Simulated assay, not measured.
Amino acid sequence: MAEAEGEATVSGAGEGDGLVRSEADLRRYDTVEELLRDKLSEALGGWRGAVESAVPTLAFALVWARTENLRTALVVAGVCVALLLVVRLVQRQDPRFIAYAAAGVAISAFFALRSGKAEDAFLPGMLQNAGLLVLLLVTNLTRWPLFGFVVGVAEPEAFAENPTWWRRHSGIVTVAARLAWVLIALNVVRLAIMVPLYLAEQVAALGVAKVVLGWPAYLVAITAMGAILLRGRTPIDPSRVA
């Protein structure tokens, strides 16, 4: 942290603006929270992305609960993805969230068909949550929060020159770490609920839990992150605190 603070670069007095000057031009932002709000808003899929992500999983769980036929449940989930993709393409809209859902169904099908156990369709998601949890913890504890890279990538020219330019601003590091703690808590809750259900082979309950702990829980986390970004007043330039 001391290193980040010590490396903060402030414009010279001759320029008269007293703003932080890094490889990226941050003069249009007054606070770190304003900067992160702008960059994170580009990464959200909205309510439609939430529905498109949840429908295949819910379909799989419902069909399995009724038929207990693994292949039938996977086929129905795949059909849902295909239909949603067709709608996106007909409307000439961005299909990336459908692509995410398709990849999820494909990976889940591989795990489930390989073992023959329907509950293994949920294993990739739990492994992903566990991996993300470890990654967020490690990067936060080492003061390299992942959300800092979101800011870094959002400034392509600066990122190409120096991918870690954002670490020169202690405020960005601090606020980015706060946001990551929210996602850490989310993944702890997800694993605490889903792992026992997986071990108990409760496929239908796993399906419901995955949907509820997916976008609905994520939106709660986004709300908490939004509160941090709306209430915070961390200046881009530490010299402007006064």
Rank of each mutant, 00 (worst) to 15 (best):
residue 59 A to M: 00
residue 129 N to Y: 10
residue 135 L to T: 12
residue 125 G to T: 13
residue 55 V to D: 08
residue 101 A to S: 03
residue 131 G to L: 12
residue 96 R to S: 15
residue 116 G to H: 03
residue 102 A to E: 05
residue 139 T to V: 04
residue 45 G to W: 13
residue 41 S to T: 07
residue 98 I to R: 06
residue 100 Y to M: 15
residue 118 A to N: 01
residue 95 P to E: 06
residue 108 S to G: 12
residue 65 A to P: 07
residue 99 A to E: 05
residue 109 A to G: 12
residue 93 Q to W: 11
residue 40 L to F: 09
residue 120 D to V: 04
residue 120 D to S: 07
residue 66 R to E: 04
residue 113 L to W: 03
residue 114 R to S: 08
residue 66 R to D: 03
residue 67 T to E: 02
residue 48 R to F: 13
residue 56 P to T: 04
residue 41 S to A: 15
residue 99 A to D: 01
residue 74 L to Y: 09
residue 90 V to K: 14
residue 44 L to V: 10
residue 44 L to Q: 09
residue 121 A to Q: 00
residue 59 A to S: 06
residue 104 G to I: 08
residue 137 L to E: 07
residue 143 R to P: 04
residue 111 F to W: 03
residue 45 G to H: 12
residue 101 A to C: 11
residue 57 T to A: 11
residue 102 A to R: 01
residue 51 V to C: 13
residue 108 S to I: 02
residue 105 V to A: 03
residue 57 T to P: 03
residue 135 L to Y: 03
residue 42 E to D: 10
residue 115 S to V: 02
residue 75 V to H: 12
residue 110 F to C: 07
residue 109 A to F: 01
residue 102 A to T: 08
residue 68 E to C: 08
residue 102 A to K: 05
residue 78 G to A: 11
residue 139 T to L: 14
residue 68 E to M: 11
residue 46 G to D: 09
residue 122 F to I: 10
residue 59 A to E: 02
residue 56 P to F: 08
residue 83 L to N: 04
residue 127 L to S: 04
residue 66 R to T: 08
residue 122 F to R: 04
residue 59 A to R: 03
residue 68 E to T: 14
residue 62 L to R: 00
residue 129 N to H: 11
residue 80 C to Q: 06
residue 82 A to D: 13
residue 44 L to G: 11
residue 86 V to Y: 11
residue 96 R to P: 04
residue 63 V to E: 01
residue 137 L to A: 08
residue 50 A to P: 06
residue 88 R to I: 08
residue 98 I to P: 00
residue 45 G to R: 09
residue 127 L to C: 12
residue 125 G to D: 00
residue 142 T to V: 15
residue 74 L to I: 15
residue 89 L to Q: 07
residue 104 G to S: 10
residue 141 L to H: 10
residue 123 L to M: 12
residue 40 L to A: 13
residue 113 L to P: 02
residue 67 T to P: 05
residue 106 A to L: 08
residue 95 P to K: 11
residue 91 Q to M: 15
residue 109 A to S: 12
residue 119 E to W: 00
residue 75 V to Q: 09
residue 141 L to T: 08
